[in-house]
Amino acid sequence: MVICAVHVPESAEAAVDRLAGGGWVMGGGTVVMPLVNSGAAPVTELVSLRRAGLDGVEVRDGVATIGAAATFTTVGERPELAFLRPALRTIASPTIRNQATVGGNLFVAQPYGDLAVCLLALDATCEIAGPDGRRDAPVAGVLASGVAAGEVVVAVRVVLPQPGTWYYHKAMRRRLNSAAIVTVASVTHADGGVVASTRIALGGVASRPVRAGSAERLLRGRPLTHEVLTEVGEAARGDIDPFDDAYASAWYRARVLPVHLRRAFLP
């Protein structure tokens, strides 16, 4: 189809009103525009969030509220979110990071949604605007099912992890600017040398980021040792649904998952 109109509303509510007539939401355009340019977009109108006031980042009382239209570059510039910089630097190129948005990454097919993997490990909450007002939803639900027609993700809220509890590792074909073979992100608290609580999210090993529930259950109450983490990585294979693409085969992704999960905790 040919795009006939691009609307640029100046608030989230105005964006919702525009969506009532159909069309697609566009954040930075890094996902939508390639589809538009190839003629694969099944819409004739776009609703851009560029001027909707959703590009800010606020940190208060240990909670970061990140606007859905905030770019990766904006997020990386905040000192309170410095723990995310190693993840952000592995995503695409600086040019793309200047445009790609936090909200948009929630809807990117694997193996590209590395920030979404981080948000899942952080147990983030999405604020969503729709015809009936605003609501909150776990990021896990948005990643699994998206949002309803006419709704827009306007912000993501994240409780900042305590020092020493954030772990991240991404296996790629190149050191930078490459999609993931396996991505591992985790918030893990240890007490007295053993794991008290843990959340482990995986990317590149299913059609969307997934929680490694089997691995989490096996890791709780145990130390972060090479042997334990290898066993935990083996268990994580039960949480994935890998695929073949130009970067790796499904077999290879499953085969190397235990190695890269261990490297997330023991580089």
Rank of each mutant, 00 (worst) to 15 (best):
H7A: 13
H7Q: 01
E10F: 00
S11Q: 05
E13S: 13
E13R: 12
V16Q: 05
L19G: 09
G23N: 10
G23E: 05
V25I: 15
G28W: 10
G29Q: 13
M33C: 06
V36Q: 06
G39D: 06
V47F: 06
R50Y: 00
G53Q: 02
D61F: 01
D61E: 15
D61P: 09
T65A: 09
I66T: 01
I66L: 12
A69R: 09
F72V: 03
G76E: 11
G76L: 09
L81W: 05
F83R: 08
L84I: 02
A92L: 01
S93P: 04
I96G: 10
V102E: 05
V102P: 04
G103H: 10
G104S: 08
N105S: 09
V108L: 09
Q110A: 15
D114T: 14
D114A: 13
L119Q: 10
A121C: 09
D123A: 15
A124T: 14
C126T: 14
C126F: 10
G133T: 11
R134Q: 13
A140N: 03
G141W: 12
S145N: 15
G150Y: 09
V156E: 07
T165V: 07
K170V: 11
A171P: 00
R173G: 13
R175A: 14
L176K: 08
A179V: 13
A179E: 08
T183N: 05
T188I: 02
G192S: 06
V194M: 01
V194S: 02
A206Q: 10
S207G: 15
A212E: 07
R217K: 12
R220I: 04
T225K: 05
T225E: 05
E227N: 03
T230F: 04
V232R: 04
A235I: 07
R237N: 07
D241F: 12
D245E: 06
A246E: 14
R253P: 08
H260W: 15
L266K: 02
